[in-house]
């Protein structure tokens, strides 16, 4: 009889406990969201370290990185946020540690062209 009643009102003890526990809802975007340090978010490229070797562009599965090279020291590396899949392959492929995926969200944009693009440009005239 008692076990029958228990099977009918099974969740009631759980409900009682829920009254004394905080809800798990995260109030994002009204409250900040904690991102782990390894989070693969925004792509940053360090212009000092980038040598324009193009390994990142070769390994990018989404073709989000483009390297335009005129000579050994004249190149442009462009990262398109709208194509990026944030897989982190560029970071792994970069031999010079120039690309980092930092734990920040990339803000949404209403149009593709208004999305920010990271661009690294080097025009070494003195070389």
């Amino acid at each position: 009889m008692l076990s029958r009643l228990r099977s009918l009102l099974y969740l009631l003890p759980q409900f009682w406990r829920m009254l004394f526990t905080r809800p798990v809802t995260v109030r994002y975007p009204f409250a900040p969201l904690k991102l782990p340090s390894y989070f693969r978010g925004k792509v940053t490229i360090d212009p000092e370290l980038c040598r324009g070797c193009g390994m990142c562009a070769r390994d990018c599965p989404a073709f989000a990185l483009e390297l335009e090279r005129e000579s050994r020291d004249n190149f442009r590396l462009i990262h398109y946020h709208d194509r990026c899949a944030y897989c982190g392959q560029c970071e792994a492929s970069c031999n010079f540690g120039a690309i980092k995926l930092v734990n920040e969200f990339v803000p949404a944009a209403p149009q593709r062209d208004t999305l920010s693009r990271v661009m690294v440009r080097r025009d070494n005239e003195e070389a």
């Binding site: 009254l19 809800p23 809802t25």
Partner: peptide
């Protein structure tokens, strides 16, 4: 109902 389910 939300409170019983752990929501806000």
């Amino acid at each position: 109902e939300a409170r019983l389910q752990g929501r806000v």
